[in-house]
Design a protein around this nucleic acid. Structure first.
Length: 869
DNA sequence: GCAAGGTC
């Protein structure tokens, strides 16, 4: 008998905590009998052991998933932007659940492990997302599990608020059922976010891209989290813009404390905004010789040690003190976590469970070169219980799990680790105690105060020195009735100053306060608005909105302010919570909310001119952008090349736009024209050492043949006779990728190259030839097209005086010597095609058989691969 | 090409 149990969302080491020996409820195995292995996806571990369950002796199998198993998307044909009206995305367009990460093969993995199991216990995170994942797991696993007998319960949900022995074992004896309503509320959230986000994003992007040539983002996205995030940044920008500085006046008094020391006093009125009134107060005090002490006080105060560390606080400090952006900080923290240096870095909780072993992590720091003394003293004198924080029931606060040095972690990772560790030590340290002394003075009729702080015991500020109470000279001892000589009273003129742009730390606080995003997604939203060029990060990690960002938000203000208000999300979430609580019907809420947003969408579309008016001020129309490059095949006037992403050609006479392949440059190709549509060809190039090919702007956007895809060049065109086509310049099947053909680059001489028309394989052929042509004949051995080469007389590699040679680039002994395989230089290794393969023998023609001039390169993969590799 | 949410 087997039982499959599923723990957590990721392969966390913490799951082992529930199966140690001696567990009170018998849910664990005898020591040493657990076996562990990796699952078929190589990521998730499977642990097996014997124990008791519902009074029977069973074999447990325990494993995990990795976040959501499934993700929601539209059916394929609704993802074609130019074929689908975004309005259809609100209702007509059907959605489907796809595997969230196909590489992990999670469904298959779960089915392999779940096959033949009798029971399943779900140990996913105890929140709505976790509940939703429960059902994703069940959808995969129930069909392969053993059938239940006579209505016996086989699906259980474990509910726990921390991964500790007591919590786990309590959960095990109080197993419940997964909550379908909570899961449904997440289904609704997914569908709303998808439909609303994609509809607005597609509409905005297409509308503005079709009108302006110098937008600084290729995607004008909208989303219920990212848009309000941007809204906060623009709101601050507006405050700065509309700020009117005001002049105010302050009285400042100085008294002699002793022979060579004076005290600066603060005016009790702080400041006044009327110069004459300030002058009047100055007149009343400036002639006074003495300041009377009216009262003194000495109070012991405490600066509290920090709450235990959660994600958003870590991100705030990383941004404001370490200068690390949230996304980068999170990546760094993840690495520290997977390497075992810190506990799980995504948590809302700032409270340690009662049973949490605080001394363990602390002891590990007892020999650290930087803080050994502090830690040893804490361990010897007894640690202070951390302050009571917020328990979100997710994961313990972020805690260092083993000692590490700067040399070991290096750079950024060390700085983050150092902060996390100092913060942890601080949470179990004592509060900082200091004495606050105040002296109240009277000069003439006006009151002034002087305060000073002296540290009694530094407490946690010893390990967090940046939090220290600043060193001040102590105030003189005095009592009511004493007098001090007035050294000076003067009036200062000052101005109120505008706020500065939002810092990332402030933005995180605002997002948290308004419930925009989660601990895990807040960095993603901030990153999004940077990447889309809505804001730029300035010095001090302040977020300054760009023209585009400002125009978008002001446009929403004009058309429908709700689209950008932070309440947009919380209002929807209120509805979703009703589903989760079983108080509202999933279909009704979904239908109603979609209906509301569909109306908003149509109103937005109808009112887009309002946003467009703002856009016009900052951006130039397509017709006024770019440089004339190549002639249109329809009107034979020059079209303009718009380099800004997405790069394209625009014919202002025909009002047509032709998108070009991205990440490359374009130039005119010898004024040659496409025989099909008369458009002038352009030469696309990925860089001097990369590949290049001719391209017809019209064909690339409107493929003339069924087997030619959109966005491709002449090197994929199957025109039977055009001198630039694949049919005429293709040589043979690519040596690396499955579907590509090596095509001669006709512009590459004198350093002749052939390049794959799909992947980034480039072969350098001949250096010293002045002409290379693809012959109509094919190789007898491999059926690749022969090359007809005319070498330079002086530097010909041929024996004797010969300059002309025809042969197969793969098989000919003369050519073999000269060919060198490379990857297109501009391509990053990450984007390379699949690795070199050997021994795939399979004949498949690249070109349509039967057309005039077509050659069928024979698949001789093993021979070719052996040759190139 | 799009959202937000998990997590690697």
């Amino acid at each position: 008998m087997l039982s499959l149990t599923t723990v957590g969302r990721g392969p966390r080491p913490s799951k082992r905590q529930c199966q140690g020996p001696g567990s009170p409820h018998g849910c664990a195995s005898p020591a040493g009998s657990m076996s562990s292995r990796k699952g078929l996806n190589g990521t998730c571990s499977v642990h097996e052991y014997t124990g008791t369950f519902t009074g029977q002796l069973v074999r447990f199998k325990m494993t995990s998933v990795c976040g959501h198993v499934m993700t929601l998307d539209f059916l394929g044909k609704y993802n074609k932007w130019d074929k689908v009206d975004p309005a259809e995305l609100f209702s007509q367009a059907p959605t489907e659940k796809k595997e969230a990460n196909p590489k992990l093969n999670m469904v298959k993995f779960l089915q392999v492990e779940g096959k033949g199991c009798d029971y399943i216990v779900l140990w996913l995170d105890c929140d709505k997302e976790g509940e939703n994942i429960c059902f994703e797991v069940l959808d995969a696993v129930l069909p392969v599990m053993n059938q239940a007998h006579s209505g016996e319960k086989t699906v259980f949900r474990a509910r726990f608020s921390s991964i500790t022995d007591t919590d786990i074992c309590t959960a095990m004896v109080r197993l419940g059922e997964p909550d379908h309503n909570e899961a449904l509320s997440v289904d609704a959230r997914q569908e709303l976010d998808l439909r609303i986000g994609c509809a607005f994003t597609r509409f905005q992007t297409k509308y503005f891209q079709g009108k302006y040539g110098n937008l600084d983002s290729s995607l004008i996205s909208f989303g219920p989290c990212q848009t309000p995030t941007l809204g906060f940044c623009v709101e601050r920008h507006d405050k700065i813009q509309s700020f009117k500085p005001e002049t105010y006046w302050v009285l400042q008094a100085k008294v002699d404390a002793d022979k060579d020391r004076s005290l600066l006093l603060d005016w009790d009125r702080v400041r006044v905004f009327d110069r004459e009134i300030a002058q009047m107060f100055l007149n009343m005090t400036k002639l006074e010789k003495e300041a009377q002490v009216e009262a003194t006080s000495r109070k012991e105060k405490a600066k509290q040690r920090p709450l235990a560390l959660n994600t958003v606080e870590m991100l705030r400090v990383a941004s404001s003190s370490l200068g690390m952006g949230p996304q980068h900080a999170m990546q760094t923290a993840e690495r520290l976590y997977t390497q075992g240096y810190i506990s799980y870095p995504r948590t809302e909780t700032t409270h340690y469970p009662e049973s949490f072993d605080l001394k363990g992590p602390l002891r590990q720091q007892a020999n650290h070169p930087y803080w050994a003394d502090t830690v040893k003293r804490l361990l010897a004198e007894g640690i202070n219980r951390p302050r009571k924080g917020h328990d979100a029931g997710d994961h313990p606060p972020i805690t260092p799990m083993k000692s590490a040095t700067e040399a070991e972690l290096g750079g950024e990772a060390w700085r983050l680790y150092e902060y996390i560790t100092r913060h942890f030590i601080a949470t179990v340290s004592h509060d900082c105690k200091y004495l606050q002394s105040t002296i109240s003075f009277r000069i003439g009729p006006e009151h002034f105060t002087c305060t000073g702080k002296t540290v009694i015991s530094p407490g946690f500020t010893e390990i967090m020195p940046w939090q220290s109470v600043p060193l001040e000279e102590s105030l003189p001892t005095c009592q009511r009735g004493d007098t001090f000589a007035v050294a000076e009273v003067k009036m200062l003129e000052k101005q109120t100053s505008p706020p500065d742009y939002l810092t990332e730390a402030e933005l995180i606080t605002l997002m948290e306060k308004h419930g925009i995003g989660t601990d895990a997604s807040i960095p993603v939203h901030i990153n999004n608005i940077c990447q889309r060029n809505y804001v730029v990060v300035e010095s001090g990690r302040r977020l300054k909105p760009t023209n585009l960002g400002i125009v978008l938000v002001h446009g929403y203000y004009k058309i429908d302010v709700e689209l950008v208000l932070p309440t947009i999300r919380s209002a929807v979430e209120k509805q979703l919570n009703l589903i989760a609580q079983g108080k509202a019907d999933y279909r009704q809420v979904l239908g109603h909310t979609l209906d509301v947003f569909k109306r908003k969408f149509h109103y937005f579309v109808d009112s887009i001119a309002g946003m467009d008016e703002l856009m016009e001020v900052s951006f130039s129309p397509l017709a006024a952008t770019g440089k004339p490059l190549s002639r249109c095949g329809k009107c034979h006037r020059f079209m303009k090349y718009i380099q800004a992403k997405p790069s394209r050609l625009h014919c202002s006479h025909c009002d047509e736009t032709y998108t070009l392949p991205q990440n490359g440059t374009i130039k005119l190709y010898k004024e040659l024209r496409c025989p099909l549509d008369d458009f002038e060809l352009v030469l696309w190039s990925s860089g001097s050492r990369g590949k290049s090919y001719p391209l017809c702007p019209y064909c690339s956007n409107h493929p003339p043949f069924r087997d030619m895809k959109k966005g491709t060049g002449c090197n994929e065109c199957t025109h039977p006779t055009c001198q630039h086509s694949l049919s005429m310049l293709g040589i043979g099947q690519c040596v690396e990728c499955e579907s590509g053909v090596l095509v001669l680059d006709p512009t590459s001489g004198p350093k002749w190259r052939v390049a794959c028309n799909r992947c980034n394989v480039v072969a350098h052929c001949f250096e010293n030839a002045h002409r290379v042509r693809v012959s109509a004949d094919t190789c007898g051995t491999c059926e690749a097209a022969l090359l007809d080469v005319d070498f330079n007389k002086a530097r010909s590699p041929l024996l004797g005086d010969g300059t002309q040679h025809t042969g197969c680039v793969f098989c000919d002994p003369v050519f073999q010597e000269l060919v060198e395989l490379k990857h297109a230089a501009s391509c990053h290794p990450m984007h390379r095609g699949p690795g070199r393969r050997q021994g795939r023998g399979r004949g498949r023609g690249r070109r349509p058989a039967g057309k005039p001039g077509t050659r069928r390169p024979k698949d001789k993969m093993s021979a070719l691969a052996a040759y190139f590799v």
